[in-house]
Design a protein around this nucleic acid. Structure first.
Lengths: 154, 154
DNA sequence: GCTTTACCTCAAGTGAGCTTGAGGTTTTAT
DNA sequence: ATAAAACCTCAAGCTCACTTGAGGTAAAGC
């Protein structure tokens, strides 16, 4: 059959440039699946390679494993995901990345003035509102809410 | 004297929008300093406010506390840092941020093709080399080396 | 057949950046 | 004067994304 699952953990790990322990970990989170041979060793279908590269790509885009997991949950589970399925996911994440890039640019361009400005009071700081919620609902004296590593899809 | 240190932890925390425990933590790392009153409670100079806002801004730019600490180590320690001192720091970090933004844009723009492409072999992947080290020293089969949260100033 | 390499599970450790809690003291408000 | 709020220290806990290690089994190479 075409569906042979004959890749060992070691081989998959090597091809993907990750450690065996990561594969175990991803499996424990339900991000990837494996079958077992007679000796209880994991055997993977080729499909897992793309799945892992998608995981890696998503991580680079700032997506957490939790989010990747729930995105994967929406994949058709009756068939192997197609190129199109994967691209739909990646496009969603791309949008998030675009937003974050915009945020970082805004941050970069205003930080200089901000550090030099009188916003020690931390009110009216240009960066205070340099976020998505530009709605001007100033309710405190909190600057710079979002961190660079934060999620974008709350 | 002008140098009165009369801000309590609680007040500083509130004004900066952080928790008292963070102030303790920053102090334990040597990022900020405090004096003590008769009852052993921390009292801060106003200067600390700017210092904290710089910390927060740097974090948003993706700079680790370690890096912030070593950047602070280069500040003149015989006098209170001036606006200029702070701006020098922030400009350095801005450059890093600019680089990272460029990386993220490259990532965003190539990820779609990559997910759809035949790079399951993970060689010759456009993203594999989409980094700083464009020198084409392909020595393995590792894609997408850098993570979104990574440092830029190694 | 034997040895080396690869694999298995499960628990615990890592690092960054904090937070929480216990047990106790000081300051502030009434 | 007393109660409440704020503060103190120190150790331990938390989240994320893994890694490491112990103790043991399976597969591959010669």
């Amino acid at each position: 059959m075409l569906e042979e699952a004959n890749l060992s953990v070691g081989k998959v790990a090597k091809r993907c440039g990750i450690k065996v322990s990561s594969l175990h970990y991803y499996e424990s989170l339900g991000l990837i699946k494996s079958l077992r041979n007679n000796g209880n060793q994991r055997r993977y279908k080729r499909e897992v390679l793309r799945r892992i590269s998608v995981i890696k790509a998503a991580q680079k885009m700032g997506v957490s494993l939790e989010e990747i997991k729930s995105a994967f949950a929406n994949l058709p589970d009756n068939r192997t995901p197609t190129k199109d399925d994967w691209q739909k996911l990646s496009r969603h994440w791309q949008q998030g990345l675009t937003q974050r890039i915009a945020y970082l640019e805004k941050l970069r361009d205003s930080i200089d003035g901000c550090i030099g400005c009188g916003c020690l009071s931390m009110k009216n700081c240009p960066i205070y509102n340099a976020e998505d919620k530009l709605g001007d609902n100033n309710t405190g004296a909190v600057i710079l809410e979002r961190t660079i590593t934060n999620r974008f899809s709350e």
